[in-house]
Structures are given as C-alpha cells and as structure tokens.
Amino acid sequence: DETGKELVLVLYDYQEKSPREVTIKKGDILTLLNSTNKDWWKIEVNDRQGFVPAAYLKKLD
C-alpha cells in the first residue's frame, strides 16, 4: 500500500559508510520513511531501511 508514502529522487550516488546507512544511486526514486532530522533522512532501498544525507535527496510532489 503506497498511499501516503512520500517519494524522493536521488540526486547523487552515495555509498553507505555504516550499517545504519544504505547505498543509493543517482536517478533512483525511493520511499521516504522519515525526514524529521534535517541532515539525515531514513529511506527504503530494496527492502532495506537506512539513512542517507538529506542533501542527496529531493522530495517529489
């Protein structure tokens, strides 16, 4: 059920640097789980959840 889920576009590649982070690729469109922290957003990638720098993402309307 995708209702109410926010999507984000990945602006730059990011390689995870800790187990709490996930790797993302430029151009991916992913589900945003939590954006309350202005610097690190929690997203879902391939059934994995983790954090990436918010500056690497853009919210889609």
Rank of each mutant, 00 (worst) to 15 (best):
A55E: 12
G4R: 15
W41H: 03
R20D: 12
L32D: 00
L33H: 05
T23F: 03
D61Y: 09
K42V: 13
L11W: 03
W40M: 06
Y14N: 00
L32Q: 00
I24C: 08
N46W: 08
K42Q: 11
G27A: 03
D28H: 08
L60R: 04
K38L: 08
L57C: 07
E16Q: 11
E44W: 07
A54W: 02
E6P: 12
D47I: 06
E6Y: 13
L7K: 14
L11Q: 04
V8S: 02
E2Q: 14
Q15H: 12
I43M: 01
L9R: 07
D13R: 02
P53V: 02
T3P: 12
E2W: 11
V22L: 10
N46D: 14
G27F: 04
D28F: 06
K5F: 12
F51P: 00
W40H: 03
N37K: 07
K5E: 08
L32G: 00
V22C: 09
N46P: 06
K26W: 03
K5N: 10
R48T: 07
K42R: 09
S35N: 07
A54D: 01
K25Y: 13
R20I: 14
W40S: 03
D28N: 08
S18E: 09
I29N: 02
Y56V: 13
D13G: 06
V45H: 13
E21V: 02
K5D: 09
V22P: 01
Q49G: 05
S35E: 11
L9E: 09
N46E: 13
L30H: 15
D28L: 12
Q15L: 12
E16G: 13
D61P: 12
K38Y: 08
K26Q: 10
S35A: 14
L7I: 08
V22N: 02
N34F: 06
V45E: 04
A55F: 09
K42E: 10
Q15T: 14
V8A: 07
K42G: 05
V22R: 02
W40E: 04
P19L: 09
Q15D: 12
I29H: 05
K5S: 14
V52S: 02
E16A: 15
L57M: 04
G27S: 04
E2D: 11
Y14I: 01
Q15R: 10
L11I: 09
V22W: 04
V45M: 09
K59F: 07
T23S: 14
K25S: 10
D28Y: 07
K58G: 05
W40I: 03
D28T: 11
L57N: 00
W40R: 03
K58A: 14
K17I: 07
E6G: 13
T36F: 09
Y56L: 10
K42F: 15
K42Y: 15
L7M: 12
S35Y: 08
V22K: 02
L57G: 01
A55P: 09
K26S: 08
Y12Q: 15
I24M: 08
Y56T: 10
W41K: 00
L60T: 06
A54R: 13
E44D: 07
E16C: 09
G4I: 14
K38N: 11
K17P: 03
A54H: 04
I29Q: 04
K42N: 06
Y12C: 12
K5L: 11
N34T: 07
D39T: 15
L9A: 05
G27Y: 05
K25E: 07
D61R: 10
N37E: 14
S18K: 08
V10K: 00
K59R: 13
P19D: 13
Q15E: 15
K5M: 11
L33A: 03
V10S: 04
E44Y: 05
K59V: 10
L30E: 05
L33C: 06
D13I: 01
Y56C: 12
P53D: 01
T3A: 13
V10F: 01
I24D: 00
D28V: 06
I29P: 00
S35I: 05
V8D: 00
L9Q: 07
K25P: 01
I29L: 07
F51W: 15
I24T: 03
E6Q: 15
Y14F: 06
L11Y: 02
Q49V: 14
I24F: 02
N37D: 15
S18Q: 09
Y12T: 08
L30S: 03
G4D: 11
V52W: 00
D28M: 14
N37V: 05
P53G: 01
D39H: 14
L57P: 01
L30N: 07
T36S: 14
D1Y: 14
T3W: 13
P53A: 02
K58S: 11
D28Q: 15
L57K: 01
D39V: 15
L9T: 05
K42I: 11
G50A: 07
R48Y: 06
Y14G: 00
K58W: 11
T23R: 04
L9S: 04
P19C: 07
R48V: 07
K58H: 13
K17R: 15
L57Q: 00
S18M: 07
K38I: 10
L33P: 00
V45D: 08
D39Y: 15
P53N: 02
K59M: 10
E16Y: 05
K59S: 05
L7V: 09
Y12K: 13
L32K: 01
N37A: 09
D61L: 12
Y14E: 00
K38V: 11
